[in-house]
Design a protein around this nucleic acid. Structure first.
Ligand SMILES: [Mn+2]
Ligand SMILES: [Mn+2]
Ligand SMILES: [Mn+2]
Ligand SMILES: [Mn+2]
Lengths: 220, 220
DNA sequence: TATTTTTTTTAGATTTGTCTAAATATTATT
DNA sequence: AATAATATTTAGACAAATCTAAAAAAAATA
């Protein structure tokens, strides 16, 4: 089956929202897609009719298992293209999201499987998010927010929560990327800010909102 | 400026048709796009309004210079993606057209310029067609149809006229590709069919309709 | 040139995706 | 529980891209 870009964007956004929230609401989805609640309601009816969505009016909604399958294929495409853009075309990790937002709607399955192979079957995208395999299987990455990492414990940056331009810009400036090794040297209980030691870099300071959006796994 | 995929498909098709015909007609364009003349008329009005097209009703039409610029950028994208698919993702030259038909509508100019660089600024696509540079400059390839090549004159395949699945399949079978060196050993005046010698291949026979759609340049 | 045929355009519908404004349902607050 | 606030849906409109059927113009032919 083929779906319009707009439908695919809705499906993908519902998938991401239901990860955290379980049931998704109309206003939530409208906000995520920068559209209006009335437009969302219209689309929900169509997705329901195509059996991609479990939805009853006023009751919230979530993807059917078929809907989830579709979502995972879109996410696979999005993340593989992001990887391509960064690793092959030398884009920065803060420049690829919008382009991948278009590329993810290219329909050919053979294309994406060949791309996967060409890239060497990468496990995660440039933001540390896992790439579903061709069957839609998505691995869970064991990681904790940097804000919960104890002091003096070596860790490796493995993921980013808020991936907005602003956040990625800040991380670029602080020289933090996926794979960066670090260790918290000092935590301040007043504001939960922290000082970090990065391998071969001067000490840096991060605020709590930033630390909550950096995910790490223990080193070794 | 950004145009819808449908508009871009119209613009590109007009460009190709006017290459040969000068002025393009409504029915011609409808046939090329597998759509109806009434739909074409609707689109022509929109393209005219956007000053991409010189059009007066019942009089035929052709692209404005702005329209040509737009067309060349779409063609650039189409051909660079085809090159990528064949050279990097190992697709056959008979498998890439449809996928490129979608990829050509991805809007990012930076993406296409980076792709061009990644590919090493190729001059022609997998079918021998020249790739416009970032300014839309298109080189002319000096070539003649194989049907006009004299006997016993070494030549190199440089382009294909009819690029339909059927034609490319036939050429695959005959082991003819862009860059293939060949020489006509015998021409039959009865039907204009010919026998060819390919480097390290048995002699093959081609009919006139095929020979008219293979373009060659003289070897050396 | 008159008539027929072909081409092109117009008129009016349809589908998809979006919107605003109004109505209705649900949830929160007195 | 009644009322107020919020969330969601419905009603009706609009733009884009397409179509069919009919009208009009141009081209071909008798
Ligand atoms: Mn998208
Ligand atoms: Mn990503
Ligand atoms: Mn296209
Ligand atoms: Mn080509």
């Amino acid at each position: 089956m083929q779906y319009s870009s707009s439908k695919e964007n809705h499906i993908k956004a519902i998938f991401h929202l239901q990860e955290s929230d379980g049931l998704v609401t109309t206003n939530e989805l409208a906000a995520a897609l920068q559209t209006k609640p009335a437009s969302v309601t219209d689309m929900l009816k169509k997705l329901k009719q195509q059996k991609l969505l479990n939805y009853e009016r006023y009751k919230g909604f979530k993807l059917s298992s078929e809907g989830k399958k579709v979502a995972l294929q879109i996410i696979r495409k999005h993340r593989l293209w992001e990887y391509f853009l960064v690793e092959k075309l030398q884009f920065g990790w803060d420049e690829v999201h919008e382009i991948a937002e278009e590329l993810e709607h290219i329909s050919s399955v053979r294309l994406i499987d060949r791309l996967d192979e060409f890239l060497g079957f990468p496990k995660t995208d440039p933001h540390g998010d896992p790439i579903p395999d061709k069957n839609g299987k998505l691995i869970e990455i064991m990681q904790v927010p940097l804000s919960l990492l104890p002091e003096n414990t070596p860790a490796i940056v493995s993921g980013i929560g808020d991936q907005s331009q602003e956040m990625l810009e800040l991380l670029n400036h602080k020289q933090i990327a996926i794979g960066t090794r670090l260790e918290i040297t000092r935590k301040f209980s007043f504001d939960q800010s922290m000082e970090l030691k990065l391998k071969q870099s001067p000490v840096i300071t991060l605020s709590e909102p930033v630390a909550k959006n950096i995910f790490v796994r223990y080193d070794q």
